[in-house]
Simulated assay, not measured.
Amino acid sequence: MKPHHLLLTLLLSYPLFAQSPLQTQLKQIAQTANGRVGIAATVIETGKSVALHGNERFPMQSVYKLPISMAVLQQVDKGRLKLDQRVKVKTSDFVTPGQHSPIRDKYPNGTELSLSELLRYNVSESDGTACDVLLRLIGGPKVVMQYLHSLGVKHMIVANTEKEIGSDNAVQYQNWSTPTDAVLLLKALQEGRTLAESSRGLLFRWITETPTGVRRIKALLPKGTVVAHKTGSSGTVNGVTAATNNIGLVTLPNGHHIAIAVFVSDAKADESVRDKVIARAAQAVYDAWSPAILK
C-alpha cells in the first residue's frame, strides 16, 4: 500500500470520523419518512452541533415566511415602514383557493390591515395572502435575498410569491434552504444581530404563540418548554409530499437555546409519520443536550 493511501486509511479509521450516537439516532429516525430528510441543530451558546444532510437543498414552503417577516421588520427598524401604517389587501392579492389564507376567508371582499397585523398573520397563522402583500410592500424577493446575504445566510433562496408557488407544484423547489443555513438564520435572530429589540420581541411573541405545528418540534418536548418556530407544508401529489418542515429555537432548562431545522422532503410516509420524524428528531436533540441528563 502506498504511504499516502495508508495515511488516509488510518485517518478514516480514527474515532474522529465516527458518527456520534446522536447522529446515528437521527439517521434512524429519518429513515421512517420514506423520503429525504435534512436536519441541523446547534446549541447557540456553546456551538455544539449535529447535522444530517445539512448542506442539501430542501423546499421551504411556509418556512420562508420567517425570513420575509424579518426583512420587513428590518425596514421598520430603519424607519422606512411603520407597524401601525394601514395596508390595503385587495381581492387580487388573495392566494389560490387551495392555499391557506385566514385573511381571504375572513374578508372575502378585501380589507385594510395594519402592517403589524399582516406580520402576525404571516408568521403566526402562516397566511399566504399576508405573505404576498408583505413581499410587494418591501419590493419583492430580491430585497429578502439582500437581507439574507447581509446576515451571511447564502444558502436560503426566496424567489417567488405564495401565489406563484401555488400555481405550479414545481415552483416550490425554487424556494429552498439547507438545514445548516436555516440554523444560521435562527442563530442571527436569537443573538439579536439582525433586528431592534422591539421588533425582535414582537416576532418572538408571534412565533412562540403560533397555533401551527403542535405535532412537530414541540410535540415530544417537556411540558412548558418554550419553542419559537415556523412550519412549512406542501400538498401531497401522487402519494408524495414535497415538504413537511419546522425550524425553531428551543429554550433549554439552563437558559441556553437550541436552533434546529428539520426538513422532510419528497416523502411517501403519511402526515402523522412525517410529523413524528420532526418531533422525534427534536426530542433526540433535546435529550442529548439538555443539562437535565446530568442530574
Rank of each mutant, 00 (worst) to 15 (best):
L6N: 01
P15Q: 07
P15L: 08
L16V: 03
T24M: 07
L26R: 11
A33Y: 12
I39G: 06
T42I: 13
V43L: 14
V50A: 07
L52R: 05
H53C: 07
N55Q: 11
N55Y: 14
P59I: 00
Q61D: 02
Y64I: 08
L66S: 02
L73C: 05
V76M: 09
R80S: 08
D84P: 00
S92P: 04
S92Q: 13
P97N: 09
S101W: 12
S101C: 03
I103V: 14
L113E: 06
L115W: 10
Y121M: 15
C131H: 04
L134V: 00
R136V: 00
I138Q: 04
G140T: 08
K142I: 01
K154V: 01
G166W: 01
G166E: 10
A170Q: 10
Y173P: 04
Y173N: 10
Q174S: 12
N175M: 10
W176T: 12
T178D: 13
T178P: 07
T180G: 12
A182H: 01
V183L: 06
L185E: 11
L185H: 10
A188N: 15
Q190D: 06
G192I: 06
E197M: 05
S199E: 14
F204N: 05
I207E: 14
P211A: 04
T212K: 11
G213K: 08
G213V: 00
A219W: 01
L220Q: 11
K223D: 12
T225P: 03
K230M: 03
G232Y: 00
G239M: 10
V240I: 15
I247D: 10
G248I: 09
L249K: 04
H256F: 01
I258W: 06
A261W: 04
V262H: 13
V264A: 14
S265H: 07
D266H: 14
A267T: 02
A267C: 03
D270M: 03
E271L: 13
V273D: 09
V277T: 05
A282N: 06
A282I: 10
V285M: 15
D287C: 01
D287S: 13
W289D: 04
W289L: 11
P291D: 13
